[in-house]
């Protein structure tokens, strides 16, 4: 059993730019989704093929969920790229992290005279850099979409205002502003915690009882991978829906 590390291991450098095993699998996820996207784009037709039908079904389900939150198909289609990409990217990277080649396949590197095994791939969401980057992009997108939808002044008046009763409302606004930054922490640590815990669980169970016993846990992690992607994208959607609606005071 290789060492459980909270941080993603560096596999190599491009100049001064580090490339970790989590980043490598994130790039693999990107390539997988891009290949599917290209396949769809090439064969897109009014009468859909198999891949197009599957993607249309998936997007239709996502749009239905978005409709239930936004209440408008036009708005759902407008914000679909952000929500669907978050969902697909997290789910794909989580599921790729469960493949057998993730973990056992790696490099034996010598570091300060010590031999250490570094897995070539690691589930991207088990690295905080991945989850924080997604959370930051999600929060920036939420605020930008809010500004585009209701205007800069209206959007930031949710946080900074002098409505009566003056000190109370202003304080609540400030708390709302602080909670925007807290969202980054809650988004990123929820995803990181679940996926990292799943990885550790699978590693320990696989080490203790290698045959059959890890199977239910593997299925559980497949479900967790899906549900965490769903939660992240749905929370983003809910915050987008709140940001793009102008609240009258």
């Amino acid at each position: 059993m290789h060492e459980i590390s909270l941080r993603a291991e560096e596999v190599f450098h491009i100049g001064s730019w580090p490339v970790t095993n989590a980043l490598l699998l994130a790039i693999v996820s990107l390539l997988v989704l891009l290949s599917l996207g290209l396949a769809i784009k090439r064969k897109i037709n009014l009468i859909p093929g198999k891949i197009q039908s599957i993607f249309e079904l998936l997007l239709e389900q996502i749009l239905k969920f978005m409709d239930s939150v936004l209440g408008d198909r036009r708005l759902s289609e407008k914000y679909l790229p952000l929500i669907a990409t978050i969902f697909l990217f997290i789910m794909t990277s989580n599921w790729l992290g469960l493949f057998p080649f993730v973990g056992p396949v790696g490099l034996n590197l010598e570091h300060d005279g010590e031999h250490s095994f570094i897995p070539l791939f690691r589930a991207p969401a088990s690295d905080l850099n991945f989850t924080i980057a997604l959370a930051v992009i999600s929060l920036i997108s939420i605020n930008l979409l809010g500004i585009f939808a209701i205007g800069f002044k209206n959007h930031f008046s949710k946080f900074f205002n002098t409505h009566k009763p003056f000190p109370v409302i202003s304080f609540v606004g400030l708390l709302e502003f602080l909670s925007e930054f807290v969202k980054i922490v809650s988004f990123s640590f929820r995803l990181f915690g679940n996926v990292f815990a799943g990885e550790v669980l699978l590693l320990i169970v696989g080490f203790l009882v290698p045959y059959l016993v890890p199977l239910p846990f593997l299925f559980l992690e497949v479900f967790v991978g899906f549900i965490q992607a769903f939660i992240f994208s749905m929370l983003t959607l809910v915050f987008v829906a709140m940001a793009v609606k102008h609240e009258a005071h």
Binding site: T20, N129, A133
Partner: peptide
């Protein structure tokens, strides 16, 4: 790494 993941 944050920037890389974000760009990705």
């Amino acid at each position: 790494l944050l920037a890389s993941q974000g760009v990705n």
